[in-house]
Nucleic acid binder design. Structure first.
Lengths: 112, 112
DNA sequence: CTTGACACCTAGCGTCGCTAGGTATAATCT
DNA sequence: AGATTATACCTAGCGACGCTAGGTGTCAAG
């Protein structure tokens, strides 16, 4: 998959996997992969900076935890994050509809 | 619409409006707007550089024409461009399916 | 005792849509 | 006549952000 495809959409994807349950970064990557049937295999260097951005923007809140001597940073949706997720879903569907309409319009009547 | 949304997708959109007929840059912008029901109102500074990229990449060919004292650069799909359009459509649908699957997965069973 | 999975981090690169400016002609308005 | 608007093209430079490529450290398996 072209890398640029994700531009602008990653945030909403991350928010969406945190909707049903809080997760740490590594698990977020795994969940994205799982939900997409293995298609969305994101690099850590993609996801971690995005998580920091989202926290800075007040859409996520994080807390350190410790499991078997391994430190984890667990992220949860803030209220604003939950709202942003709803908006993000709507924007995505709008955008997808626009692209679909442009791409599908080929079969227009051509003047004879 | 978020600007970044288009990243990576613009090329395929442009190729698709050139599929049924060759058009000049200004008309391409108008056709994108028309096909999208007015939603896709792209700036010239977005489209013209994209056209030059696509021509450099061998996906489009252009020729100057003159109508009423106004010069126009008319673009047409090359054979490689037509192939790229097919590939682009496929990639788009794959991508859209991935995002949909991630965004829609909220209603998974949660362990009780 | 090395390999691999887990788990985190970040400096810097590349791409590309967009802003904001520019040139030039033709038609329309005042 | 002069100003505005629509048509039609161009580009330097900005900003955002996904990604590469490196780094740290723990624990289990071989």
């Amino acid at each position: 998959m072209r890398a640029d495809f994700l531009k602008g959409h990653l945030d909403t994807l991350i928010l969406s996997v945190l909707e049903p349950a809080s997760l740490h970064g590594y698990a977020i990557i795994a969940e994205l992969k799982s939900r997409s049937g293995g298609e969305l295999a994101l690099a850590e260097g993609t996801v971690y900076p995005a998580l920091h951005r989202l926290e800075d923007a007040g859409l996520l809140a994080s807390a350190w935890s410790n499991v078997d001597g391994r430190r984890r940073r667990v992220y949860r949706l803030s209220r604003r994050g939950r709202r942003a997720l709803g908006a993000g879903r709507t924007e995505w569907h709008r955008f997808a509809a626009i692209v679909d309409s442009v791409l599908a319009a080929t079969d227009r009547p051509v003047p004879a």
